[in-house]
């Protein structure tokens, strides 16, 4: 006896588009999940076919983080919403010092979106998860009417475990601590901007979108007493340090000269009237540690490809007003304030 095929004809990935039935819970949705998501995200936990992923947990502290992705455009130099949604959440988990274990992915698709483009996104997402060694083990798909979404929105959630002896939190930051940055800033924001419909300009800049958990693993191995890590995404390094200053009740004093920025990014920012300190990153981290650990941590970062251009950019100082100030390249001083308004909407 031959088994009846679940779906008599395969989805036409080349020419078909997302329609309302793909989110209806019926056969069409099952087929989309089967032929697209399961095919590319394939892993043991997903293959079990349950509504949830079930896995054993080790002893110790777990961390969990979630991140919605609404980037526009969906494809940009150096990445797309798929890889970004994997990297973004891995990094949020990793900033606790944790090793990320699993991801979930929730898709909101807009009616009419080409399946061929969705397939590109899913393939990129699968590759990003595989490269990072963090599988996507559960997910969800919804479809909204044409005009109610913008192609594809992806929310990912991640869980991870923190190695014993590692305890990162912004509240531990004290005056005298040192601030390190893992590499040149502003690449992601400028790459997105260069591909925006009304602002296309030619540039060689690509997004720095990358998972940082491997770099983090080396850092916590070298300096387990590292106090805090953050990934400076929306709002850039400036906003990250302001958040941290408020949380820890300290100020920060930065040196503009020490902050790495690629020449191309600097030039694009000059042209567009942006300050690289406020431009988003997707593959950089800011770390704070005790002064006596700083050189050792810097060496560990520089030994890793994702931290090759790491630098010490300033220090925490006693300041009841929690100002982030900076000695400018010019020799004067200024505040590096919170981002006001919106420098660039839908960056991630």
């Amino acid at each position: 006896m031959t088994t009846t095929k679940r779906f008599p004809t395969r989805l036409n990935m080349k020419n078909d588009r997302v329609n309302m039935t793909h989110g209806s819970g019926g056969r069409a949705m099952a087929q989309l999940i089967d032929e697209l998501f399961l095919t590319y995200f394939d892993n043991e936990l997903l293959r079990q076919g349950n509504d949830q992923a079930s896995f054993a947990v080790s002893a110790g502290r777990m961390v969990m983080s979630t991140d919605g992705h609404v980037v526009s455009p969906l494809f940009f130099p150096g990445g797309d919403i798929g890889s970004l949604s994997v990297h973004g959440t891995i990094n949020d988990v990793a900033m606790s010092g944790a090793k990320p274990l699993y991801l979930s992915a929730s898709f909101i698709l807009e009616e009419g979106y080409p399946l061929a483009d969705l397939k590109r996104i899913v393939i990129s997402m699968a590759a990003a998860a595989k490269d990072a060694g963090v599988p996507i083990v559960t997910g969800d798909t919804k479809v909204v009417e044409a005009g109610k979404g913008d192609g594809v929105f992806i929310t990912t959630t991640g869980v991870g475990v923190v190695p014993e002896g590692v305890s990162l939190s912004g509240v531990q930051v004290e005056p005298g601590d040192v601030v390190l940055l893992s590499g040149p800033i502003g690449d992601h924001g400028v790459a997105i901007m260069s591909s925006r419909e009304n602002l296309e300009f030619e540039t060689t800049i690509v997004s720095d979108s990358a998972p940082l958990h491997d770099l983090v693993a080396e850092m916590v191995k070298a300096v387990p007493a590292i106090k805090c890590m953050r990934d400076p995404t929306r709002g850039g390094v400036a906003s990250t340090l302001n958040e941290l200053a408020q949380q820890a009740g300290v100020g920060f004093a930065l040196e503009e000269e020490a902050i790495p920025v690629r020449n191309e990014v600097r030039a694009a920012c000059e042209l567009l009237g942006l300050d690289p300190l406020y431009v988003a990153n997707e593959g950089k981290l800011v770390a704070v540690c005790r002064a006596q650990d700083a050189e050792h941590l810097l060496a560990a970062m520089r030994a890793h490809p994702k931290g090759a251009q790491a630098a010490i950019i300033g220090k925490a100082v006693a300041d009841d007003l929690s100002f982030v100030t900076m000695e400018t390249v010019f020799g004067g001083n200024r505040i590096v304030d919170w981002l006001a308004g919106e420098q660039l909407p839908r960056i991630c």
């Binding site: 390249v329 010019f330 020799g331 004067g332 001083n333 200024r334």
Partner: peptide, 9 residues
């Protein structure tokens, strides 16, 4: 003037 802290100089 403000961005570079010229008044300090």
């Amino acid at each position: 003037i403000f961005r570079y802290g010229v008044q300090d100089l």
